[in-house]
Every structure is written in structure tokens, then in C-alpha cells.
């Protein structure tokens, strides 16, 4: 083997993931004499319409992957959390249409959790052609009044859709319901920081890489051919933008869907092949996912069984149409008529 390849292997072994405490260094920077006025939140002003949406799409694919893999995982963990029967009776098996809101939270860097990714997933009665629509996180919408921690009521306001999550997943749930005019059966929060770990617990994921990949920004470097990716590599591979295929979003989506199929396959095989490792995977998954309203095990199990029929490539992705917001050209708002046509398909 090439000496540089050997060195890269050594490098990977020596490498450490950035700890949460690295955020302290960011604060040092912001408190530097010249940067006294700096506040973390204001860097958000740098965003332009459409800018962050790229992540939104990548996030959407990763999220649906995560959900498809994790939901059965949580279910099969078996008894545990108390059950929410509640007023709302949900028919989660096949036979009924189901709308699930996936909320990707990303608490990297030790800051407050944010809903970086919002994907509305439509599961038709036969569960065969799943549709997933992502909503760019900084889309300006009317956030209904929500209760904050401690019972304080925050009045309705126009704000970026991801700001609702600061008041809890219930607020995000209601915001999306009111904006889309769609009844959401359940919201599933997936913690992104856990995603790579989950892949690792599965023992990685096996993929065929058509061409060598080198993406310095993410540190991803892959040789062509069939190989096993660890969690970090898998995530980077799903996110990487350039140097692969024709660099288009379509090429990226295709890549992500292959990754998704591979992960689903991996999880299913693991269940039979290595029950001990699978148990670890379930425990890890359970920590990365929560639902609202809290679902009972039976309901989740039904979803999981229903999902078995969903081929990984049977999920179609799109992004809700947006345009620059009239109030603030640096933000986006829903493109009324086009968005309405899209959401109409989610109504039962």
C-alpha cells in the first residue's frame, strides 16, 4: 500500500472528535477585544435566501434515513417508557394515512438545541410511496402562541419556523400544522449528534463508492470500491457537495438514497446476525429519538411493521416552494399557491 495511504490510516487512528467544550474557544473569540460586540446569534444575519436550504435537503434525507432506521429500533426496545393512550386514537398500522413530522435537532457545539431540519413525511395507507417535504429552517411563518417552560404564554408572531423549537417540540408541531393546514399525527425528534454514533453501533455501513472521494472541508477521503463506512464517514458522505458525480443535488440525493438503503439493510441484517450488537444499537437509537405526542409501544410497533413494506428508494423528497420574504429579503417565506398545492396532498 501507498505510504500516504498508510499515513492517512494512522491519522484516522490518532484523530479525536471535537468535544463540546470547544464552544469555550468560540466564546474566547467573541470576547476578543476587537469582537466585543459579537454575539453568536448575529452570525445568522449572514444567511441569504436559500443559503441554509442546502443543509435542509441533506438533512431531510439523513432524517428520513434516521427515522426509518430508528423508529423500528425504538419499538423493538420493547417495554420501557409509560404509555400515552390519550384522547387521540392513532391508527398506526397500515390501512390509514399518516403524517409524521421529523424534527432534526442538532445540539453540536454545546449550544441550545435547534430544529435544524424539518421534514413532513406522508405515509399513504399502503406505506409504499412515502413522500417527504422539507421546510427550510429559516422560513418566516406565523408561529402560533405557545406555552414556554414555566407556563408563560408566548404570543403568536411572525418568526423563522425553527424558532418554535425553542419553546418545545409541541410548539413546532402546532406551527407546522397551522402553516401547512395539515393534521400531523406525531412529531419525531431525532438528535443529529447521535446519528454517526448509531451508524457506528451498527458496525458501520457497507457501500460501494463509485469513484474516489476527497473532501477536505469534511476531512472525508474514500477510495473507490465496496467498503464499510463508519458513522462520521457516512454522515460526511451524505453531506458532501463537491468532487462527486456531477455535483448536482440530484447526484447527491441518489447517493444519500443508496446510503439509506444500505443502512436499512444493515439494521435488518444485524437483528438476525448479531443480537448483542443489535441490542446496543436499539439502546443508542432510543436515546436519539423522542416522539410527541408520546406514542405507546403498540403504536410504534405498528409503524415499524408498516415501514417494513417501504423500500428505501420508495421515498420521494422535495422542498416546499419558498421565495424571498416581503418583510426581509434576507429571509424566505412560503410561496403561497405552490406551497398550498403541495400541502393539499398531505390532507386526508
Amino acid at each position: 500500500m501507498d505510504d500516504l495511504e498508510l499515513l492517512r490510516g494512522l491519522g484516522r487512528e490518532l484523530e479525536h472528535e471535537p468535544p463540546g467544550t470547544l464552544a469555550r474557544q468560540r466564546r474566547r473569540l467573541l470576547e476578543a477585544p476587537d469582537g466585543r460586540r459579537a454575539t453568536p446569534g448575529r452570525s445568522g444575519r449572514l444567511r441569504r435566501p436559500g443559503g441554509p436550504a442546502g443543509w435542509s435537503l441533506i438533512g431531510a434525507v439523513a432524517m428520513v434515513t434516521a427515522a426509518l432506521v430508528l423508529i423500528p429500533g425504538v419499538v423493538l426496545r420493547g417495554a420501557g417508557k409509560p404509555v400515552l393512550g390519550g384522547a387521540k386514537h392513532l391508527a398506526f398500522g397500515t390501512g390509514k394515512t399518516l403524517n409524521v413530522l421529523l424534527v432534526g435537532s442538532d445540539s453540536r457545539g454545546g449550544g441550545a438545541a435547534r430544529s435544524d431540519t424539518l421534514v413532513l413525511v406522508h405515509l399513504p395507507a399502503d406505506r409504499k410511496n412515502v413522500r417527504a417535504v422539507s421546510i427550510p429552517r429559516d422560513t418566516l411563518v406565523r408561529v402560533p402562541s405557545c406555552k414556554a417552560d414555566g407556563g408563560r404564554v408566548v404570543p403568536a408572531r411572525v418568526a423563522p419556523v425553527n424558532s418554535a423549537f425553542a419553546l418545545g417540540v409541541a410548539c413546532t408541531h402546532r406551527t407546522v400544522e397551522s402553516v401547512a393546514g395539515v393534521e400531523v399525527d406525531t412529531s419525531v425528534v431525532v438528535d443529529f449528534t447521535g446519528f454517526a454514533k448509531i451508524v457506528d453501533v451498527l458496525g458501520g455501513v457497507e457501500l460501494t463508492i463509485p469513484r474516489a472521494v476527497s473532501d477536505p472541508p469534511s476531512g472525508l477521503s474514500l477510495r473507490p470500491g465496496r467498503q464499510r463506512l463508519d458513522g462520521r464517514q457516512a454522515l460526511a458522505y451524505a453531506r458532501v457537495r463537491h468532487g462527486l458525480g456531477d455535483g448536482s443535488d440530484l447526484a447527491r440525493i441518489e447517493r444519500q438514497q443508496k446510503l439509506m438503503s444500505a443502512l436499512l439493510k444493515e439494521a435488518r441484517e444485524q437483528r438476525l446476525r448479531d443480537p448483542a450488537r443489535y441490542a446496543k444499537f436499539l439502546a443508542m437509537s432510543a436515546r436519539s429519538v423522542s416522539t410527541y405526542p408520546r406514542l405507546d409501544v403498540g403504536a410504534l410497533e405498528a409503524v415499524a411493521r408498516g415501514m417494513e413494506k417501504t423500500g428505501a428508494d420508495a421515498v420521494r423528497f422535495s422542498t416546499v416552494p419558498v421565495k424571498p420574504a416581503p418583510q426581509d429579503p434576507n429571509r424566505v417565506a412560503l410561496d403561497g399557491a405552490a406551497a398550498e398545492r403541495l400541502f393539499a396532498q398531505f390532507r386526508k
Binding site: G50, A53, S56, S134, D249, R316, P321, Q345
Partner: peptide, 11 residues
């Protein structure tokens, strides 16, 4: 639904 997600520039 099936159209490529237009308006999502690389970021």
C-alpha cells in the same frame, strides 16, 4: 413532488 428541489443552491 418529484421535481428536483429547485432553489436549493449549494451552501
Amino acid at each position: 413532488m418529484t421535481a428536483p428541489p429547485a432553489g436549493i443552491p449549494v451552501t
